[in-house]
């Protein structure tokens, strides 16, 4: 997992729960590098689960709810860092359908070791769109947060349904309908 995911997680935890919470979850998670992550590094993705697990226990909040919130936070940082990517698309659907074939492809060029999910998008005649998430990382909640934040970024009212194709969350269908 790329270091940016860790540094952004710490950012979010610090803003919402304070620096002490950051230190606590680092201590709880017993990380090999004691939490010294750099954006350009690559780390074992299990460390992110351990950190989220620790945060979940300490805040008594569902881990997936935390990951989803993290997804929303991540999208805002993407908007701030890469505004052009968002300006290129006129609406949420055209942005989302370009994530797999365009954005993540560019991500991989910059970080050849990036471990990215697979997304398939399907347009329905009624105007809704399916986005099927597939990844052994089972971070569908992150995708959910990213999608919701994308809709909000484009100022579009929507409904988001999710259906587990694989029970363990390695394959999940999101159906987005604009209202």
């Amino acid at each position: 997992m790329k270091g940016i995911v860790f540094t952004e997680l710490f950012d979010m935890v610090e803003t919402h729960f304070g620096l002490e919470m950051v230190q606590n979850i680092i201590d709880d998670a017993q990380l090999p590098n004691h939490g010294a992550y750099t954006k350009v590094g690559t780390y074992d993705h299990k460390e992110i689960y351990r950190l989220v697990g620790a945060l979940s226990q300490r805040t008594d909040t569902d881990a997936n709810a935390l990951i989803k919130a993290f997804g929303k936070h991540l999208l805002q940082t993407f908007v701030a860092s890469y505004p052009a990517l968002f300006e290129n698309s006129s609406d949420s659907f055209s942005f989302l359908s370009g994530v797999h074939d365009y954005i993540h492809v560019e991500v991989r060029k910059i970080y050849p070791d990036a471990d990215l999910p697979h997304f398939a998008t399907i347009d329905h005649p009624d105007g809704s769109m399916d986005m099927v998430y597939t990844s052994s990382k089972k971070m569908y909640a992150l995708a959910e947060g990213l999608i919701e934040a994308t809709m909000e970024h484009y100022n579009e009212a929507f409904r988001l349904d999710k259906e587990f194709i694989e029970e363990d969350g390695s394959k999940v269908r999101f159906t987005i309908s604009k209202k």
Binding site: E20, V22, Q23, N33, H34, A36, T38, V40, G41
Partner: peptide
């Protein structure tokens, strides 16, 4: 934990991270 201690630890983390980043950069 004291606030100063927390900041110190954060600083240590960031120094370590910077060194790691420099190593990667090199």
């Amino acid at each position: 934990m004291e606030a100063i201690e927390l900041l110190e630890k954060k600083l240590q983390r960031e120094i370590a991270a910077r060194q790691e980043a420099e190593r990667i950069l090199e």
